[in-house]
Amino acid sequence: MSSQEIPEKNLPSEQDTAHGAVAVAEDPFADPGLPPHKPRIQDIDERAAKRSERTVALLFTLSMLATIGFIASFVAFPVDKLVYVWPLGHVSATNLSLGLTLGIALFCIGAGAVHWARTLMSDHEVADDRHAIEATPEVKAKVMADFADGARESVIGRRPLIRNTMFGALAMVPLSGVVLLRELGPLPEKKLFHTSWDKGKQLINMNTNEPLRPEDVVVGSLTFAKPEGLEEDDHEFNNKIAKDALMIVRIQPEDIKDKHELEWSHEGIVAFSKICTHVGCPISLYEQQTHHVLCPCHQSTFDLSDGARVIFGPAGHALPQLRIGVNNEGFLEALGDFPEPVGPAFWERG
């Protein structure tokens, strides 16, 4: 408790009696020093201290009981048992009982320890000196001299050939690690430009797994489709559907504002990529009256009656349209792949 900053008389032991009588000396805002220790009830009254002791012990005991409760509930409740507990509703008996007993067991240890510290351990405040983080000039000089000695003895300064080749070698060796990272995945090439859709591929209803006929698509309904030949148990199903997913609606031909869209439709049935052009969420909310579709992730909104152009939200361009027709058997079929990459935009997209 030795600080140059605090005058001796202000230290608690000296000050206990004199406190409150510090005269306004030269500087009215002078540091009066550490305030005197205020005794707690436990410091004065042994009965209060005893009470604290019992409280702490009670908390620790509760913790022990809760741990026994934890083990008991672990053994007692079947893992699939549900119980109704107000206001939580139907919850897993195991989860609730284990969580509460573990919570109580831990909390009581903490509460006991904190109560012990606050009421029974000494609460005398003590001042400790700080020492400058910076070294003294002597130490600095010594370190610099040591470093200079070491550098000189290594002859690194006199033999630059060693130094330069060493730096070269150290700079190059991590390249091996970087090169190895090449194996993490294939190059992008033109992978993002194509989907499985091709001329003659039938449109398969996502829900029924049956080829779609034009009469299956009625005004006001939203149908999801995948290309013929893509099955859910295919190893690459997720990779493929991430680009192939199709959204089909029927719009009265006179309501289609975009000429090109009408041309690529079949009697008002239009097929657009389901993958949002913003960051790739599947679009799934359809407003029958306006023919707007909304991406539930970031709320980009597209007008399917007008070339699926963006009318609100963060998407940067319209949804790609798939040109469709009807084959000899009367099923809807694609007349080619999407004319542009589906999904989020990227540098090479152009």
């Binding site: 939580l88 919850v91 989860n95 609730l96 009982s97 284990l98 969580g99 509460l100 573990l102 919570g103 109580i104 067991a105 831990l106 909390f107 009581c108 240890i109 903490g110 509460a111 006991g112 320890a113 904190v114 012990w116 510290a117 606050r118 351990m121 000494s122 609460d123």
Partner: peptide, 24 residues
């Protein structure tokens, strides 16, 4: 002893509260 008890105890308080939240 003070911070050993207070900080150590606080670990159990935090853990206890999180366990109870996770249970409910």
């Amino acid at each position: 002893p003070v911070y050993m008890a207070k900080a150590g105890g606080f670990f159990f308080l935090v853990f206890g509260v999180i366990a109870a939240i996770a249970g409910m």
